[in-house]
């Protein structure tokens, strides 16, 4: 079974962490992944940096710019990850924008992901409609789970459509924002979390954007199967380097 699906079946709330590959240093990728797993993180989103990350706030933008300056490319990332399954068991997802995948060739990209042991992809600027018409068959051929976003503005009808195309989990964007823009959850978000929870979707939901500490993690996982932390982790790495990952994770799961 796909590792994401197996993980979603576990009877616990899931913590997923995003980091930008190639940041702070080009060769940190594997050690960050191992450290996150060792400290009890359930799932990892490996950010393939892009020059123009439209859906990201300043923190992830800056880390992406630095990663590209450090020399990160699709090829380099795949090389770094080629033996990752010898040591790491938790689900690994690549999160990136569509153009670098399109240039690599979508089929070739998916094939390499499969060979490495990547379990899924999150591609914010590949809309579900285009995926469904042009790429779904390729993803399925290589057993990859494509994860779609929903937001507070997504209509019920579209959520049902996204649920029908999805085959792992649904990425619930906590509020109308780019990454990193939130500082906590108010009534509006709680109402949205409740609304989605009541829809009884076939795919579990994981909430992301604006989760930064134990408090927001606990709030989000009251309504959802798990939560994703991105900008807060990247900030932590910026400020404290990659040697204190355990401190960060312990603070979330305390």
């Amino acid at each position: 079974m796909n590792r994401i699906k197996a993980k979603l079946k576990e009877d616990k709330k899931l913590l997923s962490i995003y980091f930008t590959a190639g940041y702070p240093n080009i060769n940190d990728t594997v050690s960050i992944i191992k450290d996150l797993e060792k400290n009890g993180v359930d799932m990892i989103e490996i950010g393939l940096p892009f020059s123009d990350p439209l859906a990201d706030g300043p923190t992830i933008q800056d880390s992406s710019t630095q990663a590209l300056k450090n020399g990160m490319t699709t090829e380099v990332l795949f090389n770094q990850l080629k033996d990752i399954r010898k040591t790491v068991d938790i689900p690994l997802i690549i999160m990136g924008y569509f153009n670098p995948m399109f240039q690599y060739g979508v089929e070739a990209f998916c094939k390499t992901c499969k060979e490495i042991g990547i379990d899924g992809l999150i591609i914010p600027d590949l809309p579900v409609d285009v995926y469904h018409e042009e790429y779904q068959a390729i993803f399925e051929k290589f057993g990859l789970i494509n994860v779609f976003l929903i937001t507070p503005q997504t209509s019920d009808e579209r959520i049902r459509f996204i649920d029908s195309i999805s085959n792992g989990f649904i990425y619930m964007v906590s509020s109308a924002s780019t990454t990193g823009a939130q500082s906590g959850f108010g009534d509006e978000q709680t109402a949205y979390f409740e609304r989605i929870a009541k829809m009884n979707l076939k795919n579990p939901q994981i909430i992301g954007f604006g989760i930064s500490n134990n408090d927001t993690f606990t709030q989000a996982t009251k309504y959802a199967k798990g939560a994703i932390i991105g900008s807060a982790f990247v900030k932590h790495v910026t400020n404290e380097g990659i040697t204190s990952i355990s401190k960060f994770v312990k603070n979330i799961l305390k």
């Binding site: 892009f50 020059s51 123009d52 590209l68 924008y97 569509f98 153009n99 399109f102 240039q103 690599y104």
Partner: peptide, 21 residues
């Protein structure tokens, strides 16, 4: 080369790795 920028597929100046130049 064909690529995606600002929401559309079009001709786009980019590296062979798909980063916009």
């Amino acid at each position: 080369k064909e690529g995606i920028i600002h929401g559309c597929k079009t001709l786009l100046m980019q590296t062979k790795d798909g980063q916009i130049t």
